[in-house]
Write a protein that binds this DNA or RNA. Structure first.
Lengths: 184, 184, 184, 184
DNA sequence: AATGAATGAGGCTTCATTCAT
DNA sequence: AATGAATGAAGCCTCATTCAT
């Protein structure tokens, strides 16, 4: 994972992967047909454990929906910028276009779950009268978009201007819940 | 550009670039020291023309600031998903981490300009009493984040679930201006 | 060795070296970092075994020193024109200027030993009253110079006028011991 | 000349030669068929002017032959270590083996003249009763051999231990005229 | 189950050579 | 007579892949 996330598929050398694993290049071929198969299986294997946490998140929670939205977003940042998920997200972003199988797999196993999570969140808010039934409800992923953007920033512009995660989250939540306009 | 955007730096073959340019591999070395120099110069040369449109965007505009925000966001989508900028943005996202020079260059020439643009927009809205002085004003890039996310989606999950740009834009603007909560 | 001695460093092709060794070009890189490293290691490895004979040469020898000088010179011709040392000497001569490391190494491991050998020879002759204490004693290498010249001739003018080694040695010894002038 | 002498035939780049000459690579092909033809013509053209001085040297000289030998040897060192001849000698030594035409040409135009020069010198000494008719007379080149050796040293070991030309010449003359043995 | 040695295809790079202008 | 742009062959080097042990 780490090698692929750091160098990308093409620039990653099997020798580096092997030595990280404490084995020799040839040993890899006892377990994987070739570099691409290794890549796909590595990604799949690392994606699966990340699904459960997303599942749990909504389950038991009582109280106002806006607090729930805030909590969900905070957790998203924590996970997608954390050491477990960040490399995977980076790989999906950079290599997904060249490996449709992986993109599809990731979409179905993770992204679509996130979509459902957000939809149910929004529906709950609408049902309770807290949220408007706006265009956002049908395009829930817009709510999570800034998290993706934060991951991109982290691996791209952090050398120039480091991401200020806390401020970023605050602004994100503010925008998501209140928007820019003054409330009358 | 097209080759690098499609395959990434490592997987791009000079032969492909050359044949696209209607020359032979060796000819490239009459103009560039090596593959990396070619890459960097190609990106730089293609980034520069994209700056002007960003500059123009703010220009003179009268009328309510929320309409201005909407216009700016629509233009951002139009450009960053368009054929000129999209490949560059894709390259910055995928290779920026491995080419800090390029990331820095792009940040300074493009991203920082966008930051200023958005800040002046928000300040204008605050000054006119239309917008709240919220956390968003100090973290303006949160406004543009969904555009980045849209570019990522286009090159990643479009095969699974194509991006519905129009709905995405509507939701984005709705969120940016009004947020989720019902207006009292 | 043979390839480098025949063609020089620049004109030697790794493919030729590999096929001589019964392997494939790529195999070379399992053992040497690059062409230059291969070259340097090949020279070093082949120089080392040539040191011992030089060492032995002086050993114990009783009898008149002029006979000892004659024997040493004859052995020098035998070795430096022989199949083991000749290629190395040729390489040192042709490539030493471009590879100072190798020149230094060869000087320290071989040439300086030869210098000592000749000095001790001459000192012995002076001590026994057989030789004059002339300028030759302080510039002992002049004694070996014709051997170098013979190696150069062999690889240069042998096609035009082959080196007549025996006559050459006789003349060399005659000159070294007696000089041109008639003895009074 | 300078380029070929410094880098050898294979490693010399036509571009470097051209820029030294203040022209462009392609221009060379207006005057020479290819790299090898250029090389051969360059060497030939630069060898020819060096012949005359050798010719003159013996011509008019009266006095003892040993003084003549000394003078000839000193001039040989002066010329072969000098800026005009040294590069040529270096080229002949390093590339002569790979370019028999050049070696033959150089032998016939220069070396054979030197041989004659030395032979007539020695015959004169023998005729006048100054020199012995020894093996040296029939292998005259042994007299010049240390000069060749000095040129080799200059381009090979000078970085380690610089050639001390004056001492070298003294020793050479001493050896040539008197040899090592004490005169009775 | 693992190694280490070897392969061979393929990519980057250099440079002698050509040619239209 | 000279240029400068382009070519294409060839060389160095890397690395995914194979295989005998």
């Amino acid at each position: 994972m780490a090698e692929f996330a750091t160098h990308g598929f093409a620039a990653t050398r099997l020798e580096d992967i092997a030595s990280r694993a404490g084995v020799v290049k040839g040993t890899i071929y006892l377990y994987f047909a070739n570099k691409e198969a290794l890549f796909q299986e590595v990604v799949r294997a690392n994606v699966l454990p990340t699904i459960a946490p997303v599942q749990d998140m909504i389950a038991q929670f009582s109280g106002p929906t806006d607090a729930l939205v805030e909590m969900v977003l905070r957790r998203m940042y924590g996970q997608m910028l954390g050491p477990d998920l960040a490399p995977i997200v980076r790989i999906i972003i950079t290599e997904g276009g060249r490996f449709p199988d992986i993109a599809t797999f990731y979409y179905e196993e993770v992204v679509s779950k996130g979509e459902e999570l957000l939809r149910s969140l929004l529906e709950r808010g609408v049902a309770s009268g807290e949220f408007e039934r706006s265009a956002i409800v049908d395009e829930q992923m817009i709510l999570a978009a800034p998290v993706v953007s934060a991951v991109v920033w982290r691996t791209t512009f952090d050398v120039v201007r480091p991401l200020e995660v806390e401020r970023d989250i605050e602004a994100h939540i503010e925008m998501a819940l209140n928007g820019l306009r003054v409330r009358s």
